[in-house]
Computed example of a mutant assay.
Amino acid sequence: MSSTISANVDGRTATKLKMVASMENRSVSNAVSSAITVFVGLPKGVRDFLLELNAQDDQDTIVRLGREMMAAAARVRLEKATMDLASEHRFGGSDDASSEIDMMEEATAFSRAAAQRT
């Protein structure tokens, strides 16, 4: 069940929101819904820190943190793809080292393919 929620934002935030929604071919409502879903799912300390950075207009730290989060997300995707491949037992044989390399290469290919879809 969905609920309608109303929020007031300043003009600068509204402009950024409309730009993001347009660049991602999404409605403003969909972008707001996604933002709220992500925000409420974060631990309170992370939410507070992000709001603090925004209030301080600390764009350098925001950009740096975004890059670090993307790197962490890529690592997690790679680990998940590797575990998924390992669970399929598609790579086997007597040479365990080459099997691990094969799995890593396949996981990297899956991760790249997934990143291109997003």
Rank of each mutant, 00 (worst) to 15 (best):
V76N: 10
T61E: 04
A74Y: 11
M1Y: 03
Q59G: 08
D96M: 04
D57E: 10
D10E: 03
S111K: 05
V32R: 10
S98L: 10
A14W: 01
R75K: 11
T108N: 11
L53Y: 01
S3R: 15
F91M: 00
I101K: 09
L65V: 06
S6A: 15
A109S: 09
N25I: 05
R26P: 11
S6H: 07
E106Y: 01
S34N: 15
L17H: 04
P43W: 03
L50H: 01
R26G: 11
S94C: 09
T15Q: 13
M69P: 06
A55V: 07
T37M: 08
T4A: 12
S87L: 07
A109H: 09
E79W: 07
G11V: 06
T37I: 08
A71R: 15
T13P: 03
K44C: 02
A107Y: 02
L42E: 02
D10P: 14
L65H: 03
I101L: 07
N25E: 07
M19Y: 15
T13W: 03
A55K: 15
T82K: 02
A73I: 08
V20R: 04
T37Y: 13
R47Q: 07
Q56H: 09
S3F: 14
I36N: 08
K16H: 12
D48H: 08
R75E: 09
A7C: 13
S29C: 05
F49T: 10
T82C: 05
D10L: 12
D58L: 05
M23V: 10
S3P: 06
A31Q: 12
M1R: 04
T15H: 11
A73K: 09
D95I: 00
E88K: 01
M1T: 05
I36K: 14
S33T: 05
K44V: 03
I36W: 13
A7V: 07
S27G: 00
L78H: 01
T37D: 10
L85I: 02
D58H: 06
M70G: 13
M83T: 15
L53T: 09
S33C: 04
T61C: 02
F91I: 02
D84N: 07
A107D: 05
V38D: 02
M23Y: 12
V28W: 06
M23A: 14
M83Q: 13
A113K: 04
M70W: 06
L53F: 04
M83I: 13
A97H: 05
K44W: 04
M70C: 10
V38P: 14
T37S: 07
M103F: 00
M70Y: 11
A74L: 13
A35R: 10
S27I: 01
A55T: 07
S98P: 14
M104D: 14
A113Q: 10
N30S: 15
T4E: 12
D57S: 11
E52T: 10
E68Y: 13
E79T: 11
T15K: 15
D57G: 09
F39R: 08
F110R: 15
Q56T: 08
L85W: 00
D84M: 02
A72L: 11
R64E: 12
E88W: 00
D60F: 12
E68N: 13
R77E: 08
Q56N: 03
R64C: 14
S34Y: 12
V40F: 01
D96H: 05
M19L: 14
S27R: 01
R26I: 10
T13V: 12
A7G: 09
V76L: 08
A31T: 13
V32W: 09
